Computed example of a mutant assay.
Amino acid sequence: MSDDDDRLDEVAAELLSLPPARFTATRNERAASGGALGRRIAKLRKPTVAAWAVNLLVRDGQLGEAVELSRALHEAQDDLDAAELSRLGRQRRQLVAALARRAAELAAEAGTPLSASVADAVQKTVNAAIVDERAAAAILTGRLTAAVDLADLDAGSFGDAVAGSVPDIVPAPAAARDDLAARRARKAAERALREAERTRADAERELTASDRRLATARERSDRAGERVDGLRAELSKAEHDLAAAEEAVRAREGERADAADALRAAESARERAAAARDEGDR
Score class of each variant (00 low, 15 high):
residue 139 I to C: 03
residue 156 G to Q: 13
residue 149 D to W: 05
residue 143 R to Y: 04
residue 180 L to E: 15
residue 181 A to D: 12
residue 154 D to F: 10
residue 162 V to D: 00
residue 161 A to Q: 15
residue 150 L to T: 12
residue 162 V to H: 02
residue 182 A to W: 01
residue 155 A to P: 02
residue 168 D to I: 01
residue 141 T to L: 00
residue 173 P to E: 05
residue 134 R to P: 06
residue 166 V to P: 03
residue 134 R to F: 03
residue 150 L to R: 10
residue 150 L to K: 13
residue 157 S to N: 15
residue 164 G to S: 09
residue 166 V to T: 13
residue 149 D to E: 09
residue 178 D to V: 05
residue 170 V to Q: 15
residue 135 A to T: 08
residue 143 R to G: 06
residue 172 A to T: 07
residue 174 A to P: 09
residue 142 G to H: 04
residue 175 A to Q: 13
residue 150 L to E: 08
residue 150 L to M: 11
residue 171 P to S: 05
residue 160 D to T: 07
residue 141 T to F: 02
residue 157 S to E: 10
residue 135 A to C: 08
residue 141 T to P: 04
residue 146 A to H: 13
residue 160 D to G: 15
residue 179 D to F: 02
residue 141 T to H: 02
residue 181 A to I: 01
residue 164 G to K: 04
residue 131 V to P: 03
residue 150 L to F: 13
residue 147 A to I: 04
residue 136 A to N: 08
residue 164 G to A: 07
residue 176 A to Y: 05
residue 154 D to L: 14
residue 182 A to H: 09
residue 175 A to P: 00
residue 165 S to D: 09
residue 143 R to I: 00
residue 161 A to I: 05
residue 155 A to G: 14
residue 183 R to H: 03
residue 151 A to D: 13
residue 159 G to D: 11
residue 164 G to Q: 07
residue 139 I to N: 00
residue 135 A to S: 14
residue 142 G to C: 03
residue 173 P to K: 08
residue 177 R to W: 09
residue 133 E to L: 12
residue 132 D to I: 02
residue 172 A to C: 09
residue 163 A to M: 10
residue 137 A to V: 11
residue 155 A to H: 15
residue 170 V to G: 02
residue 132 D to E: 12
residue 149 D to M: 05
residue 137 A to Q: 06
residue 176 A to Q: 09
residue 174 A to V: 08
residue 153 L to C: 09
residue 170 V to F: 09
residue 168 D to G: 11
residue 150 L to S: 08
residue 153 L to I: 15
residue 158 F to C: 04
residue 139 I to Q: 05
residue 178 D to G: 15
residue 169 I to R: 12
residue 139 I to M: 06
residue 161 A to W: 00
residue 157 S to H: 10
residue 131 V to S: 10
residue 138 A to R: 01
residue 173 P to T: 00
residue 168 D to K: 09
residue 145 T to E: 07
residue 151 A to Q: 12
residue 139 I to T: 07
residue 138 A to N: 06
residue 137 A to C: 11
residue 166 V to H: 00
residue 174 A to F: 08
residue 147 A to D: 11
residue 146 A to D: 13
residue 140 L to G: 00
residue 146 A to N: 08
residue 135 A to G: 07
residue 156 G to E: 11
residue 145 T to K: 07
residue 164 G to R: 04
residue 178 D to W: 10
residue 177 R to Q: 06
residue 177 R to N: 11
residue 136 A to S: 14
residue 136 A to R: 05
residue 141 T to Q: 01
residue 182 A to S: 11
residue 165 S to H: 00
residue 179 D to R: 13
residue 171 P to E: 04
residue 155 A to Q: 15
residue 181 A to E: 10
residue 170 V to N: 07
residue 167 P to E: 03
residue 160 D to E: 14
residue 152 D to Q: 10
residue 131 V to R: 10
residue 152 D to I: 01
residue 144 L to N: 02
residue 171 P to Q: 02
residue 178 D to T: 06
residue 160 D to A: 14
residue 177 R to V: 02
residue 176 A to I: 02
residue 173 P to S: 11
residue 178 D to K: 11
residue 145 T to V: 15
residue 135 A to F: 06
residue 153 L to T: 15
residue 142 G to L: 11
residue 133 E to R: 14
residue 170 V to R: 14
residue 134 R to T: 14
residue 170 V to D: 10
residue 171 P to T: 03
residue 164 G to M: 08
residue 167 P to I: 00
residue 169 I to S: 07
residue 145 T to A: 13
residue 180 L to H: 10
residue 131 V to A: 05
